[in-house]
Design a protein around this nucleic acid. Structure first.
Lengths: 337, 337
DNA sequence: GGAATTTACTGAACCGGATAAGTTCCAGAC
DNA sequence: GTCTGGAACTTATCCGGTTCAGTAAATTCC
């Protein structure tokens, strides 16, 4: 089956290719009657503009890119990214933008992918996640002048717009809530320590715990996996002066922590309170359901997509703080016994 | 920054555009010396072929598509797809193919996306998941002659290749194991009943239970979500002659089922044995860790990607059964008390 | 040694759109 | 009645590759 082109439409309508192009793109240069006639023919024969041809003649590729820098094992269970992707799609699909995905193994690898995408003109812009301090990707994106939006910050991104949620405020809310319940020994199991948002959260956690004069407030670094989160929990709970509450940097680690507590014969929430970050369905799935710092990740993603599309359109895009997480108390938190 | 093109290379090397194209694509028509010189220059100036131009001049788009027909809420927690995507990527990245993702809401919508992708020449082929009986997508793909691989079957896909794992064998293995432990009342919580693989599993489950002469062997339909899986479990467990073991069609529902059992004061595995399908890290995360029907989903995806690339290359691709799931016993199964 | 073939290229057409630069044609102004 | 200006087109060029037809030089063959 042959793909219909504007030449086919032009022939049917008895006009030139140029006229068809003007008509379909809402450009001036054709009468309203002709435009309607052309559009009707296009619809009738199921015309879709060849994205390659369009991209080649200087217009946009109508695609944006996302690189995921995680091994398969971790990705498969990280609900955050799928939520984010769903959010992206809600905006992108409406404007007929495609999302191009690439799984990579290192940030250096990510840079290579950006360079390739740029050279291939494959994408009009990219989403950047998992920002690190002094991230190597930022200078490259600036050099290539590839539109981008950094998700998670705030950090030093130069002219590149970023969007983040108020992690410091959220962590403070969680700690204050636990303290109000009577907890005095609170621990936190964090994600990868070199990620920017981990650092933000760690700083905020330490600050708020100090200001509230807590007995102990350690942060144990982990890597966002359930496995490592469980190990970190075990290390915390074998101490004599074990914490009475633990805040986890994501839901997967929180679930693993819950399992470790059960395995060690500790009752949740009687002996240990648990707070999860990022409230995926996972949190309400387990027993007891986990108190979580919820935020609308899909909306977060949609917001980021709007930002990126604006940046691609050449509009001035400013940094925004969006979607502050707020505490959703469930069965995993209670006063310490 | 200007993107380097083959014209730039041609100028530097003092040859024509055509010669450069032949050299870079390993085509005959240039001497080995010239080829080396051209390749060196290309590497030096960081040349990447413009994918749009390449796609336009008849060559492939170097991209494949995947549509996901799930609401955001479900997708975010479904580890299966991320595992599959990781598997795709391992093959695609090696051959510089991009993966284009689109989240849609209905199968009809999926058909539209296929038509658009085809018209736009955006992808060279597509992965098809979640096959239903009499799936509307198959005739469209045949009509468009868009290379495709169906993941999950076997079904009636005409000339389109498919890949599936031996679900019937796996479900039999699980049931036989439970029966060997002494269970006589086994239930199953399934995924969406109109999906082909759900039907295959249901048929196999009923058959093996009948052949083993079990007291009761109901399948309760669900929709793969934890929420619905939990509800189905609750409905099963309130009966007087409740099952002593439940097999779930995915890991998320199994985890939800575990939570419901705990909530109802039933001990797992003493009062209820649980078997999960698809062994994501989730299964080893909870307490007790879940016995699961494991298969290597990433390898499954990689296999599918190899099939699709072969189909795109015009090779004859045959249906294959790959990666049979096998039982991985963990703490959630034991003889009934 | 001259014709035939092969090698190593060049030049130009082509893919399917976007778009700048004409070309008609007609209404309105003077 | 001529001139101007704009609407409604057409024509031609460009984007950056691929590929085919052509060509000159080198090599092979009898």
């Amino acid at each position: 089956m042959k793909r219909p082109t504007i030449a086919d439409i032009a022939q049917r309508a008895g006009v030139s290719k140029g006229a068809v192009s003007y008509a379909l793109n809402g450009q001036p240069g054709v009468s309203e009657a002709t435009r309607q006639r052309i559009m009707a023919i296009a619809r009738e024969i199921g015309f879709n503009p060849n994205s390659a041809a369009r991209a080649l003649s200087g217009a946009s590729a109508k695609a944006v890119g996302l690189t995921l820098c995680r091994p398969a094992r971790i990705l498969s269970i990280e609900p955050f990214f799928m939520g984010l992707i769903s959010g992206f799609e809600s905006e992108l699909a409406a404007r007929s933008y495609a999302l191009t995905l690439q799984v990579v193994s290192t940030p250096e690898n990510e840079v290579e992918v950006y360079r390739r995408w740029w050279g291939e003109r494959r994408v009009d812009g990219v989403f950047v996640t998992d920002m690190r301090a002094g991230d190597v990707r930022i200078p490259v994106l600036q050099e290539l002048q590839l539109p981008a939006v950094v998700i998670g910050g705030p950090g030093d991104t130069g002219r590149i717009a970023q969007i983040w949620s108020d992690d410091a405020g959220a962590v403070a809310e969680a700690v204050r809530y636990l303290v109000a319940l009577g907890h005095r020994r609170i621990a936190r199991v964090s994600g990868l320590p070199d990620l920017l948002h981990t650092q933000t959260r760690t700083r905020a956690f330490t600050e708020v715990c100090t200001s509230l004069g807590l007995e102990s407030a350690v942060t144990v670094p982990s890597d966002s996996t359930g496995e490592e989160g469980g190990r970190a929990t075990r290390r915390l709970l074998i101490n004599a002066d074990r914490p009475t509450a633990i805040v986890y940097d994501n839901d997967v680690m929180a679930v693993a922590g819950l399992a470790v507590a059960q395995e060690m014969g500790l009752a949740v929430p009687a002996d240990l309170s648990i707070v999860a970050w990022d409230d995926s369905p996972l949190c309400s799935l387990v027993h007891p359901p986990l108190t979580a710092l919820s935020r609308d990740i899909a909306e977060y993603g949609a917001h980021a997509a709007r930002q990126l599309l604006a940046a691609i359109a050449g509009e001035k895009v400013t940094d925004v703080e969006a979607g502050t997480a707020h505490l959703t108390p469930r069965g995993s938190t209670a006063p310490p016994s």
